[in-house]
Every structure is written in structure tokens, then in C-alpha cells.
Simulated assay, not measured.
Amino acid sequence: MPSIFISGAARGLGRAVAEKFLAEGWTVGAYDIAPITYEHPHLFSGILDVTDAASWEEALGEFATHSGGLIDVVDNNAGILIDGALSSLGPNAVARQIEVNCLGVTLGAQAAHPYLKKSKGQLVNMASASAIHGQPNIAVYSATKSYVGGLTEALGLEWRRDGIRVIDLWPLWARTGLAEVEAPSVRRLGVRITPEQVAQTLWRAVNYKNRWERGKVHHGVSTLDKALYLGRSLAPDRVARLLTRVIAG
């Protein structure tokens, strides 16, 4: 039975991913700093502080005892968002987002490496469409997701010889607690993506059908975020900046 370990799995996208993979017959490790409140015969859960390297080691080691020592996929999902203009955010709000979204993802990748090397598995990092071009009023969050994109690309090359595939997801606003903010892009674009859509995209991404699909690194979820990503890759900086001002300025 294949296995997946998910951080930030108590609610939102993490829980949707857990439920999708459980429905497909996988062994699932659902870990979070908050208690896991759902159950399944193939679900194993526990506490994880993603900003603590020792917590990662303990959680992955514990789950591996239930998955035959192998972990096929690690979903680096945990993340937080604190909205507001940078000039109005306190230092703790800034630091906490960087700690969870950057340090937490990096420590998770580091701790997952030996397990994924053994299984020739996959690391999935949760990025965001907010990283396509930096967004005002969620500047720190947006920047942390740009970091996730860069980390994904670097590790994809660094871990290639170990047989580990590294990818990420770049969804727009999904119907989770993270979207309950005052960012202008929420009002202008709406919250149209469900956690189940994100989970389905992740499922398809790790269960690729051919070498072309295996080579894809960044995965959009909706037609709109895919179009925005493509547009950003083709547009000059001034055009991308203008587009972002219209959507999120």
C-alpha cells in the first residue's frame, strides 16, 4: 500500500488531500500542530511543529513505523497567512509567516530526504498563485511562496540523482481559512477553488501518466491560475506589474 505524509493536515487543503488519498487506498500520515479530528483505518496522525527540526524527525519516524519504513510522498502543506500592509504588521507577524512558510517547508524537505531517497519518492510543496507576482497587503506571504517555488526548483535538480521528484502547486484562493482575509485579490477574483480540487490536482500530479507529465514542476489548479502563470512567464515585468495592480492593487 503506497503512503503519503501530510503536514498541516488538521483542516483545509491538508485534510482534503488526506481524505482523497485515503479514498484511493493509500496509507496516510496526517500531522499538524492542532489535533487531527477525523479517523480512518489507514490514517495515522500526530502532532507536528513544522518550525522544529526535531518534531519533523519524530513525526516522520513515527509514521514510517506504520508504512513499512517507506514513505512514497511527503506533502509539505502547512502554511499561514497574516494579511495587512507591511508597514502595519508587527515583527512577530512577519517572523511567524517566514518561520512556518519558509523554514517549516525547508526543514520538512530536509527531514523527508532519507525516506524519499529510499522509496524513490516525491516531495510536494504548497506554493501559491500569489507568488506569480508579489501581491500588496499579503507581501510577506507572497514572498514566502516565491521562496517555496525557488526551493522546489533547486531541490528538483539537487535530488535528481537520488531519484526524488520535487514539485509544487500554485493555486489561487481556495475555500479555506487562509482566504478569510482582506486582500484585494480575494474581492476581485473571488474564492472559487475548493480544497477538493486542490487535492485532485495533487493526486494527478503524483500519479503522472508519462514522462512528459513527470517533468512538470509547477502545477496550477484552476484555469485562471494557470493562465496567470503562463501570462507572467511571457509578459515583461512592467506588464506583469500592471496586471497585478489591477487584480490586487
Score class of each variant (00 low, 15 high):
A139M: 08
A143T: 14
A143V: 05
A143G: 08
T144N: 05
T144I: 02
K145A: 07
S146N: 10
S146G: 15
V148C: 05
V148I: 13
G149K: 15
G149V: 06
G150C: 00
G150I: 02
G150A: 11
T152K: 09
L155S: 12
G156I: 08
L157M: 07
R160N: 12
R160D: 13
R160M: 04
R160Q: 14
R161T: 10
D162N: 11
D162E: 15
D162Q: 13
G163R: 04
R165L: 06
L169T: 15
W170R: 12
W170I: 01
W170H: 15
P171R: 03
P171L: 01
A174L: 05
R175I: 01
R175Q: 15
T176N: 02
T176I: 12
G177L: 00
A179E: 02
E180S: 09
V181H: 00
E182G: 14
A183L: 11
A183Q: 07
G190C: 00
V191S: 07
R192V: 02
R192E: 10
I193P: 00
I193L: 08
I193W: 03
P195S: 10
P195W: 09
P195K: 07
E196N: 04
E196F: 00
Q197M: 15
V198G: 03
T201M: 12
L202S: 01
L202M: 14
W203E: 04
W203M: 12
W203N: 04
R204S: 15
R204M: 06
R204H: 14
A205N: 11
V206P: 07
V206A: 09
Y208P: 09
Y208D: 03
K209A: 13
K209W: 03
R214Q: 14
R214S: 10
G215H: 12
G215S: 14
K216R: 15
V217Q: 11
H218T: 00
H218M: 05
H219M: 04
G220E: 11
V221C: 02
S222L: 10
T223Y: 06
D225T: 08
D225V: 02
